[in-house]
Design a protein around this nucleic acid. Structure first.
Lengths: 208, 208, 208, 208
DNA sequence: TATGAATGAGCCTTCATTCAT
DNA sequence: AATGAATGAAGGCTCATTCAT
């Protein structure tokens, strides 16, 4: 309960090394020996701080998980916007979140099955979505449709493409990078382009 | 490289068991012991046929990989269609391919980094795309744009959303299933719905 | 169920080494590495044959356990004897059993708490005792008491001292050996003496 | 060696926790971590006070050992008794000692082999026996035999059964408890009964 | 073709111990 | 007096691989 106490530098270093490796290679492919080597400490020290590899992973997973979904549903200052502006803002926020945490979706996809407790947490988080955001947005959407500015389409059929396009970009990016031998600049350009392209695509698609 | 001699039944059984497990749990989390148990044979037999676990994995990876991209770019009988029909057909073909091989994208995303040799292969395959398909399709697209039936948009900016939406559906499906506690019927309905929803979304988005 | 199949020589060697070490030092103080060294094989081989240290121990424990209690209650040809002769024979049989398996009592005392399944087995074995032996013996005892040849005493109060004296000798022998710096000959003499001394003590004690 | 300065309360707490655990589970199966947890202190503190686990164990072993044998041979006020009364008193004293320290015999049996230094100590202690007790008692015994009140028997052949019966009761008690599923009351009754039964048995056995 | 036996390397974990504070 | 941090060694176990048959 009393979480977020200031970690010791070593504990923090372990967390960071573990985070890096778990995100990069997944739980199974990461060994505590590798983490220790990355930290530059004895392997037993990892168990001193976190007792088990599973524990260490859970700590990181939960933290990343919370961070991700808290930001995902944290959409302040949207109320005063027009509908199109809202959509644009939400997609760009989501995109930014992924840009800052590009490996989290794959982490969740990979490892959620190993963490049934987290499933419940996610379910709960997702339940907040309709009430806080979905309902309001849906009202706007229905108004837009009635006004003839948007074609008849359900909100979920807007959100799924939006989320899919954003997530897919970052999930598939490592493959694309490798295959197209992209350098950092090219990658940056691609991301920059997709940010707006995704928004445009959605907005074009829903126009009446 | 591609020796296509008919496999022995045992060799085939190993391949099938390995395929199932590798797709399900990934390379690291699958052991040759598990594969042997699944086949119902001796552990050493796997090495008799494939020498190393890596070898066995590569065989499957390459095969799945070929299958995936061959079908992806194999668009017979498209020529006679109209542009919209072509797009619809391509997306639905791609969707069907994913439906039949829902785990392949995750496999590639997960394991491609471990297989630099495969990257070259993929690159080569991708180079065929523009020549066989891309160019022809692009001609159609430019014609449609000139005719005012499609808004000005590059072909790649149509393909990326299309592929993204299809891939994201199947990559994220295991998480969605778990979180929403969907049964088989619900899952089937969702997939059925998305098949057409994805097409519609693309088509709506590109209309002038 | 189909137990007692002919063991491979290596498996047998492992069993023997493990038996020796487990009896000598107990479960906790014996490592699989030590067992492997004793056998002269790789440590992993022990897990190849028995999967876990616990499994290996259980195999030995159960075998020793069964052997011990089967012989304990296997008292053939006693029926035709007179009462005193019966008592003598039973004590000497028990003594011989301990002589051949001097470390088993300590093994059971040490490790039974770690093996709750075995407790049930032992309980069952012990339930056979009264029916097969105890009842008959008790009839004899009552007859002897009525005839005035034996003082009034319950059978259990004869058996407990008998068993105690026999067991205590072998359980305490390692300590006695060490403390008194006895050589093999002295030890043998002591055991030989106690064999008869124990019988005599019991017989003297119950005489009217 | 025997520095008898008053222990610090913490040191005392460690000793008590360690004693409890060592007696219960033996040296190998007890970890300094467990002891620290039992005490509620830091693990390092145990080494601060006792330097090594072995040292801590030796302290306890030696203390228990001394206590056990000092009381064993400490037979005050016996001189004025008659022979039978002496025997009775000695057995009951021994029994009481075991009742208060029921785990010590098993501790010694288990761990003496790991402590060759302690063997010398025990040997020395045992050498005091004949001088202080044995000789006097033997005189009494010979007198009794000569008087025809006791059958011809050596003192050692009285003492071994007496000690054996007492020790065996407490050494085997944990097994008996488990197997017969005895509750505390039943156990208490059994012990109470055996206390006198053991005395009676010895006395009956030596009568002429 | 197929298998049982065997092995070295690595994994996660626990342990006793040390050291600086 | 007491503690948190850190470590080397060892434990049990699994793994991919090899080899003789």
């Amino acid at each position: 309960m009393a979480e977020e106490k200031l970690n010791q530098p070593t504990e923090q270093a372990i967390l960071e090394a573990a985070e890096k490796l778990f995100l990069e290679k997944g739980f199974e492919a990461t060994s505590t020996t590798q983490i220790a080597k990355e930290v530059g400490c004895n392997q037993a020290l990892i168990h001193y701080y976190f007792r088990t590899k599973d524990n260490l992973f859970n700590t990181i997973f939960e933290q990343k998980f919370r961070l991700f979904f808290q930001q995902l549903f944290n959409i302040e200052g949207v109320k005063s916007m027009g509908f199109e502006e809202k959509i644009r803002h939400l997609i760009i926020s989501h995109f930014a979140l992924l840009e800052n945490n590009p490996q989290i979706p794959l982490l969740i996809i990979r490892e959620l099955s190993r963490k049934p407790e987290q499933v419940a947490l996610l379910r709960e988080k997702l339940r907040e979505l309709p009430e806080k955001l979905f309902a309001a947005l849906n009202d706007d959407l229905q108004a837009e449709i009635k006004a003839g500015r948007v074609r008849p389409v359900s909100l979920i059929d807007i959100m799924i493409p939006a989320i899919s396009m954003n997530v897919a970009l970052f999930v598939m990016m490592p493959v694309v990078e490798q295959v197209l031998q992209m350098d950092e600049g090219q990658k940056k350009n691609l991301i920059e382009h997709r940010r707006n392209a995704n928004v445009d695509f959605i907005l074009h698609s829903i126009r009446a």
